[in-house]
């Protein structure tokens, strides 16, 4: 690889590294996620929060659902549905927008339901894209180990 390219590459990697550090440090300040909010719940009590998770329990008597967050440490949050009319099923995924009014309690204002099979289908129909993209790429380009660069294949030149 040419020296100029190497220096450019290092600069770009450093910039992206700094952005990653900034994202990690600044996230809890500018856009705290629900895990951080639960840990510091006194600070965020009675504020609007949003999160996504899997519905693991439905209580029709109290009109509550129990949501398991999708990311570690997989907190569970009770969501009250009195202000919404969404028809939810156990196993479905839901994006919740609501008011935090307890350490693990949110009163939902809006719910976006994603049925489990439709959620899984997103990943399933993403799979063909990988061989498709790789086929298109390697049909046109080949890697030259000596120059460390991709070169156009002759028939596609």
């Amino acid at each position: 690889m040419h020296h100029r390219n190497l220096i450019t590459g290092i600069i770009l990697i450093v910039i992206i590294g700094l952005l990653m550090i900034y994202s990690s440090i600044g996230h809890n300040v500018y856009d705290p996620d629900i895990d951080y909010i639960i840990k510091n719940f006194e600070k965020y009590n009675n504020t609007q929060v949003s999160f996504t998770g899997e519905i693991i329990e439905i209580n029709n008597i109290s009109n509550n659902i129990l949501i398991k967050l999708l990311e570690p440490p997989y907190h569970k949050i009770i969501v009250n549905l009195n202000n919404t009319k969404e028809n939810l099923n156990k196993g479905d995924y839901a994006e919740i927008l609501g008011i935090l009014n307890g350490k693990n309690h949110v009163t939902a204002e809006k719910i976006l339901k994603i049925e489990r099979w439709k959620h899984n289908l997103i990943y399933l129909r993403s799979l063909p894209a990988i061989p498709f993209a790789l086929y298109l790429f390697f049909k046109t380009w080949k890697f030259n180990k000596e120059t460390l660069k991709f070169e156009r294949r002759k028939k596609n030149a």
């Binding site: 770009l12 992206i16 660069k149």
Partner: peptide
Amino acid sequence: NHLHVFDPLHTPVGAFLIAGIGALFFE
């Protein structure tokens, strides 16, 4: 916990930077 380290990749600035790094591997 990924601590949102990779989130910038899904922003225009981050994605263009990755595109820039990738482009360096072409003639």
